[in-house]
Amino acid sequence: MSGLLTETFLAALLSGAVVAAVPLILAGLGEQMSERAGVLNIGLEGMILGGAYAGFAAAVGGWGIWGGFAAGILAGMALAMIMVVFCVRLGINQIIVGIAITLGVTGVTALLHNVYFARTYPRLPAPEKWAIPGLSQIPLIGPGLFDHHLMTYAALLAPFVLMWLYKGSFLGLNLSAAGEKPEALDAAGIDVTRTRTTGALFAGAMAGLGGAYLSEIGSGIFVPAMSHGSGFIAIVLAMLARHRPVWVMGGALLFGLCLSAATALQVGGVEIPTDFIQMLPFAMVMAVLIAFGRKARLPAALGTPYRRGQR
C-alpha cells in the first residue's frame, strides 16, 4: 500500500482524472444548453460514439489530431441535425429519436470498425502535451493538472465562457426562454425553432468533440461501443447542475477522479474485480440522484415540441 502514495502515483491519478473528465465536461455542457432550450437529447450517447469514431478515423487517416477534433464535431452535428429535423421541426417524440440515434450509431460504427480497423487495430501515438510554464513545476498538482494536451485546457475553460454566454448575452436568455416558456419567446418576435436548433446543434458538436477526445487523447484507439454510457452520465450531470456550467465541470471531475482511482488502484496491485470498477460510475449516479434528486430541475417545456398557437 505504501507504494500507492508516492508523488508520481498521485500525479498520474490526478492527470487521469482530468483526461477521463473531459468528454463528460464537453458532452455535459452541450446537453445543458440543449436542455436549457427545451430539447432533451437522449441521443447524446450516440453522438459521443459517432464523434469518437469520426475523430479517430480522421486522425488515423492523416488529418492529424486537430483534424480529428473537427471531424468529431462535424459527426456530432450531423447526428444532431437528425434530432433537429425530427424533434425540433417536426415535433416527433424526443426519446424515440434519441434511442434511434444511439442504436443506429452503435451499429454503424461497429460495422465501420469491422471493415476498416478490426484486422489491424491501429493506435494513435501519445498526444503532444503542452506543459504550462511555471505552474507545471508545482509538485504533485503541476504534472497532474498543468501538463495536458491543449484541448484539455480548452475544455476546462469552456464552462466559464458558457457562464458568460448565459448571463450576459441575448442568445443565453433566448435559450432559457425557449426551454421555459417558448410562447413568450415567440411573442417577443424571436424564432423558437431557430433558438432550439442552435441548442441542439451545439449539444451535437460538443458531444462529438468529447467523443473525439475520448478516442484520440483518452485511449488512442477506437473500440465499438467505447462510450459505455458516458452520454447518459453527461445527461445526469447536466440535469443535476441545473443552470450552472461550472457545476457540470465539477461533477465531471468528480467522476473522472472516481474512474481514474479505480484504474490506478488496479494498476497499483489492489485486488478489485474489474466488474465492480465498471459499476462504480453508474452506482455513483444513482446515489447522487437518490441523495439530491429532489433538486434536479428541468426546464418547464423540456421534451415538448413547440407548435405555434397550440396550448
Binding site: 424515440i96 429519436v97 434511442i99 434511434a100 443506429g104
Partner: peptide
C-alpha cells in the same frame, strides 16, 4: 456482414416509424 447490421436496421426502423407517426 457483422451482426451489428441488425442494430443499424433497428435504428432506421425507429426513425422511419417516428416519421410515419408524424
Amino acid at each position: 456482414v457483422p451482426q451489428s447490421f441488425t442494430m443499424v436496421l433497428v435504428g432506421f426502423l425507429l426513425l422511419f416509424l417516428a416519421l410515419a407517426e408524424w
